[in-house]
Design a protein around this nucleic acid. Structure first.
Lengths: 217, 217
DNA sequence: TCCTTTCCGTAACAAGCGTTACCGTAGCAG
DNA sequence: CTGCTACGGTAACGCTTGTTACGGAAAGGA
């Protein structure tokens, strides 16, 4: 049985190529030939690694979710208390040190594709539900006395704010710079963590950020 | 010169067809033939009313902005004070009585198309900037004592929340029902309108030329 | 070394895309 | 009523799309 291949590695390579095409050329430019070119191969390999284009998109979507989940796990594990973990997880969701706008553009592309494909929509909802569950757990740890209703409302509000900032920044990066996103998140989190913050709060970008409340420029 | 046509009416008809196709079939299904079928004509009329597909999309995008601006004007005019106008304008942006999810789906479709087309992106930014200016003016009327920085942060946070709710509801209507969207918006507005409801009158003319009671600077 | 078997690039396929050219036709001027 | 002209439906264009079939090449077992 000669010449064996690593199918998993091939799929990962192609999924990464999907992201790059989606980030650079958008959803209309997402063709199999463009993906193959970015991956440094031909459409032959693509169609041997995936039975159809839809399967490729689903795998790329799942891989995107996996990596964001890994990042969120790391951010949560690196934080001491629940409020710090909440800030860290949400903070890394709105502003990444590298390639942030790219990821938002990819996210929007998948979302637009999901609105036309029920299978993709299901993956989208599953990923968002998982993120919602994580935030809800952290908010509940910060505010154990809250009712389920308030918990759900705050959780979905925070997630909506984060995704809204990402979406708006994807189309208008200069109108929504990283600083403003962090500040908006910090302001929204004040209602959750309130005064019980002992650790240094936001600002993953500038290590000189003050720790006092109402940090304003 | 026989047989004259109403070009404006034709373009409006076609733009409405673009919306319906975008809402039902998503961005990948947005073809000239699909638009023509929805409009009850053939591609011949489409290409006589617009020189190219891109021109059609630009017109449809502009018309979408025009209608939302008219709705926002109406909501603002129907409110007595500034805080009421802010609630009304944002409230009608997150939840419309009819065809709300459709409009969000259309908005996402245009956004995804804008990420691949700079001209569409410019229209998107212009529309968003106009909406931001409206919200900023209303927030400033509610809180004249706020600094420009806090004004901008709150404005963009509110808009990001609204758009985030819309985007998430477009892909997961059951996870983000109208009730939750209104509650999330009301909670976010508590920090703005607070206890001083019904005090400051709304100014329908200029972006607040200093008629507020506690104007700084 | 050779053979066998799996891999994957090449090239073609039908279908659908945006766009164009053409001509029948509908409706006002005379 | 007749004729002229702008309108718009028809159909084809060239191109790209996702998908398929096939053959050459590469690599482990003999």
């Amino acid at each position: 049985m000669p010449r064996q291949r690593d199918v998993g590695a091939q799929r990962e390579l192609l999924s990464n190529a999907v992201w790059r095409v989606l980030a650079e050329d958008g959803l209309p430019g997402l063709t199999l030939r463009a993906v193959a070119e970015r991956a440094g191969c031909t459409t032959g390999l693509v169609m041997h690694a995936f039975p159809t284009k839809k399967a490729l998109l689903l795998h790329a979507r799942d891989l995107l979710y996996d990596r964001t989940a890994v990042r969120a796990d790391a951010a949560e594990a690196a934080s001491g208390d629940a409020s710090g973990a909440l800030e860290a997880v949400l903070g890394q969701a709105v502003d990444l040190p590298h390639g942030h706008h790219d990821e938002s553009r990819v996210w929007v592309g998948f979302l637009a594709a999901a609105l036309a494909d029920e299978d993709l929509a299901e993956r989208h909802r599953a990923a968002n539900h998982s993120f919602l569950a994580r935030i809800r757990r952290l908010v509940a740890a910060c505010r154990p006395e809250w009712t389920d209703e308030r918990l759900e409302l705050t959780t979905k509000s925070l997630v909506a704010l984060v995704e809204g900032l990402n979406v708006l920044a994807a189309a208008d990066p200069k109108g929504y710079p990283a600083r403003l996103q962090q500040d908006a998140l910090a302001q929204a989190l004040q209602a959750v963590v309130s005064e019980k913050r002992g650790r240094n709060p936001v600002s993953h970008s500038r290590p000189d950020a003050g720790t006092g409340p109402n940090r304003r420029r």
